[in-house]
Structure formats: structure tokens, C-alpha cells
């Protein structure tokens, strides 16, 4: 049987969430986030950004990814995610490590050698 997580909403009414569906959505977003970090790291390396500008580019791409995910889920994001803020901030640092890895790699390949 699938597990069910009851949570009370603002009105005090109980809503049961399906844990398998939540985990499925979160892992899908996680996949997108890792890909986004790698690819935007590549782009930052190609563009030759350095210093603070590269980190600003990372913030920008995280924000763009957030907007794209919300756009995909449509107007009813509440149907798929419990809150939007965790969608934006989840595993921010882990993706940053991936980003820096690809950024430095591509920067070295294109601009240094």
C-alpha cells in the first residue's frame, strides 16, 4: 500500500498527500536542477565569466529554472508541490558545486588553453 501523509491546511481541513507522488515530483525537479547546474556551468565557462559575475549567472539560472518549472506545472502548482519556496532553495549548495565544477572546467578548456 502507498503511504499517505496527512497535513492540515490553513482552514484546518485535513489533506492527505501521497508520499510516492511527492517523492516522484521532487526527484524530477532534482534531475532538472542537476542538469541545469551542469549546463549553465558550461555556458558560464564558455562566456568567460569570472569572479562575482559567474555566481550572479548561477543565481539567474536557478531563478530561470524555477520559473520554467512553475510554468510547466501551470497555474495549479499547489496540485504538485506543497510549497514553492523549497522548490527554489532546495539543494542550492549541492547544485552550486556542480556548477563551479563545470564552470572552471569549460573556462579552462576554452579560455586558458
Amino acid at each position: 500500500m502507498q503511504r499517505v501523509k496527512p497535513t492540515s491546511s490553513k482552514t484546518g481541513e485535513l489533506i492527505a498527500y501521497s508520499e510516492a507522488a511527492i517523492r516522484n515530483n521532487i526527484s524530477a525537479v532534482e534531475y532538472c536542477r542537476t542538469s541545469m547546474a551542469a549546463i549553465s556551468g558550461c555556458a558560464a565557462g564558455i562566456l568567460g565569466l569570472n569572479g562575482l559575475l559567474g555566481f550572479l549567472f548561477y543565481f539567474l539560472s536557478v531563478f530561470v529554472l524555477w520559473l520554467l518549472v512553475l510554468m510547466k506545472s501551470g497555474t495549479h502548482w499547489r496540485k504538485f508541490f506543497i510549497n514553492r519556496q523549497s522548490l527554489l532553495t532546495n539543494s542550492f549548495m549541492g547544485a552550486l558545486c556542480t556548477y563551479v565544477l563545470f564552470w572552471t572546467f569549460l573556462y579552462g578548456m576554452v579560455h586558458v588553453y
Binding site: 498527500y17 501521497s18 507522488a21 516522484n24 532538472c32 541545469m36 530561470v64 496540485k79 508541490f81
Partner: peptide, 17 residues
């Protein structure tokens, strides 16, 4: 690339049990 990765990952599931 980012847009297509999001499209490929598949549809989200409804979380209400």
C-alpha cells in the same frame, strides 16, 4: 537545453492522495 530537459523529465504527479 534547460527547457527541453524539463519537458523530457515527464509530467508531475498529483500529490493529493
Amino acid at each position: 537545453v534547460i527547457y527541453n530537459v524539463i519537458q523530457i523529465v515527464g509530467n508531475f504527479k498529483e500529490i493529493r492522495a
